[in-house]
Computed example of a mutant assay.
Amino acid sequence: MYGLGEGRVVVGCGGFTCQDAEMPPHACAVDPDGLARWCLEHLGSPPAEEIFRSGHLSAVIGLRLADGREVVVKVRPAAPRIAVCVEVQRRLFQAGYPCPEPLTGAAPFGGDIATAEVYIPGGSVLPGADVAAAAFAEAFARLIRLVPSPAEVSALAPAPSWAAWNHAGNGLWPRSEDSDVDLDEVSGAEWIDDAGRRARDRLRIGASGAVIGHCDWLADNLRWSGDTLQVVHDWDSVTADSEDVLVGFAAALYSTIDADKLATVEDTRRFLVAYGHARGRDLSADELHRAWAAGVWTRAYDAKFQHATGRPITSLSEDEARERLRRAGTPPDELTRATR
C-alpha cells in the first residue's frame, strides 16, 4: 500500500467513488471532472486510470495519466503552509533525499488546494526489527542535515495539531484539524491532561533554535527496500521546531516489529542513541529530557483525542507516561491517577 499517513489515518478507496464508509467525506468528494481539468492544466495530461484513493485530512489519489506518467494528486483545505511544505519537499528531492519529486506547486482546486508528485509504489513498511531503531534514526538525521533552514522558506505555522505543543490558544490542547471537539472541555482520563501539561512545561525550558523536520515519523509514512530507506511520504507533516523536539516526536512514533504499534520506551531509547550516533554527536542531557518530553506530549495528545472520541486509548498508557516523564526529568509521582 502506498505509504501516506495524511493525518495518521489511511483508508483505501477504489475508483472515483468512495468504496469505504469509514473514509472521511473530504477524501471521497473530489469531482472527477474537476480532477481531469486540474491535471490537464497543471500536468499537461488528463487522467486515464485511477490507481488508488486514500487519505484522511487530504484526498490522496494515484493516477495514470493519458501520457503514461503515474502521479499522486493530493487535495486538501487551502492553507498557506502547504506551499512551504511543497518547497521543502522539492529542496529535499533536489538534495538527493528519498522523497517523491513534486510536479507542481500548491494550486487552487475549487475551494481547496492541490499538489501533484511522482508516484513511488512498493517497498516494505518496516526494515528488519534488529536494525529498525538505527534505520529510522539515520533516515531522520539525514533529513535534518539536508533540509533548508527556516530562514530560507516562508513560515510553516501553524504546526499540525499533534505537534502543536506550543500553540497560541489558551488551553492545553490545540484543536484537531478533523474534529470540532474541544479537548480542553472533555472530562475524564485526567492522567492524560497531567502528562501533557508536565511535558509541555518541560518543553518550555531551554529551547534551542528551530530547524525544519517531519513531525509524523510513523512507520506508514516510510517505505523500505530491505533495510535501505526507499521513500518518505506525507510532506504536509513538515514543521519547524527545535531539533530535540522533532527528534523526540520521531523517537516516540516510529515502529519496530509492527506498524500498528508505536515505539516502546526501550525502542525510543534506542532511537535517541542511534540518532546521536548518526549526527556525530550524542544528545546532551537537556536534549534528551526535551526529546522524551516531546514524545510524551504528542502521544498524550493522541490519547486525549482517542478518549474524547470514545475510542480505545492506545497511544499512551498511564504507566508508560510515568516512565517517559521520568526520563524527561519531570517528577512523575504527582501524576493524577486515572479514574477507573
Rank of each mutant, 00 (worst) to 15 (best):
G5I: 04
R8L: 01
R8Y: 14
D20V: 08
P25G: 10
P25A: 15
A27L: 05
A29P: 02
L35C: 08
A36K: 13
A36R: 12
L40S: 12
L40E: 14
I51H: 02
R53M: 04
R53K: 06
S54Q: 14
G55Q: 03
L57I: 14
V60P: 04
A66E: 15
D67F: 09
V71E: 01
R76A: 09
A78Y: 12
A78V: 12
A79L: 02
P80D: 14
C85S: 14
R91V: 00
L92I: 00
G96E: 02
A114S: 07
T115W: 04
A116E: 04
A133N: 07
E138I: 01
E138W: 03
A139K: 09
P148C: 09
E152I: 04
S154L: 09
L156K: 09
A157V: 10
P160Y: 05
G171M: 03
L172G: 01
W173M: 03
R175Y: 09
D180C: 01
E190A: 14
E190T: 12
D193S: 12
R198W: 07
R200W: 08
R202Q: 14
A207D: 07
W217M: 01
W217G: 03
D220Q: 03
G226V: 01
H233R: 01
W235S: 00
L246K: 05
T256G: 11
D258L: 04
D260Y: 08
L262R: 15
A263R: 03
T268D: 12
R270F: 03
V273A: 09
R281P: 06
S284A: 08
A285T: 15
H289W: 09
R290C: 06
A303W: 06
K304L: 06
S317C: 11
A321F: 03
R327A: 13
P331H: 05
R337E: 12
R340V: 10
